[in-house]
Amino acid sequence: MGRIAYVNGRFVPHAEAFVHIEDRGYQLADAVYEVWALFGGKLADAEGHFARLERSLAELQIDMPMSRAALTTVLREAVRRNRVQEGLVYLQISRGVAPRDHAFPHPPVRPAVVITVSRVDRVATEARAAKGVGVVTTPENRWGRCDIKTVGLLPNALAKQKARVAGAAEAWFVDELGFVTEGASSNAWIVDRDGVLRTRDTNANILRGVTRLSLLDVIRDAGLKVEERPFTPEEALEAKEAFITGAGTIVLPVVSVDGKPVGGGVVGPVASRLRRLYIERAKERAI
């Protein structure tokens, strides 16, 4: 059986899943999204993703299209119909369909909802994590509300393409003060020369990563020291280890920045341990 998508109240074959040409998500990036990792067919970090979704919608003044309980049921049904155990669930909610105008439609229209499910090869992702990946740096050029998880991702896409051309897996944005803000689709971390874990605080213009938040709990439970303060690319190169976090990457070790090695160019013990601890915790708490 082929892939199944959910589009505005209906489950349809993935190849036949369409949205209207005047959907505001398509025309104006007037939409938000969330991505859940799936472990054993269950949603990881569910509470964090729902909370961030609700916050993003509120910031854009888009109504929740259904209750959280109803949305959970639909997400689970999408997973069941696609028969995916290990993978990712993508949810997008736009303001809806209306004649093209920058201002919000009046009266308001019904939000549009799209859900897709994809498989992840855990064997391949573990092999990638064991090897580590490279990142490149790029100037921060995004809008001032990166805390909202919108579909307006053109700067992120351009940064990802820069990374791909360079043979890297991710791009780190660097602000005007020379500090790393975050990755194009992940949060950025280092283990500095003193063994302290460091990641940018959310008062900066970064996304409030759900995996990041869960990992902070894992770190504290493990008795490790962590500080939410910025670091430069130069500090990353001098660090013992570096890694990125996200629903798709989980905890992914970084072994080079701009082609220069981090931690001798090999995966370090802290990132490997945190990846294992995070996955164990996510599996236990998935719904």
Rank of each mutant, 00 (worst) to 15 (best):
A204H: 13
I190H: 03
K283M: 08
E34D: 08
A163W: 06
R83S: 14
G263Q: 07
H14E: 15
H102W: 09
R128G: 03
P233H: 07
A37D: 09
G183P: 06
V84Y: 10
E176I: 15
I219L: 02
N82V: 06
E126D: 15
A282V: 03
R83E: 14
R122M: 15
G134P: 00
A15S: 14
L158W: 14
V19D: 00
G264E: 04
I93L: 03
R3E: 15
I115M: 04
L252P: 13
F104A: 13
K131P: 00
A98Y: 02
S56A: 09
A171D: 02
V218P: 08
T72I: 12
E86C: 03
V165E: 12
V120D: 11
Q85C: 08
D201G: 11
E228F: 04
Y26G: 00
D175E: 07
L53C: 02
P107R: 00
G87R: 12
G134Y: 04
K260A: 13
D221P: 14
H14A: 15
A15E: 15
Y33Q: 05
W143R: 12
A271S: 15
R80P: 13
Y33T: 04
R95F: 06
G248T: 10
Q92S: 04
L216A: 03
A239D: 11
L177A: 14
A29V: 04
H49N: 13
I4Y: 10
G167Y: 10
F179C: 14
I21L: 13
G195M: 09
E241H: 00
V135E: 05
E227A: 11
V174D: 12
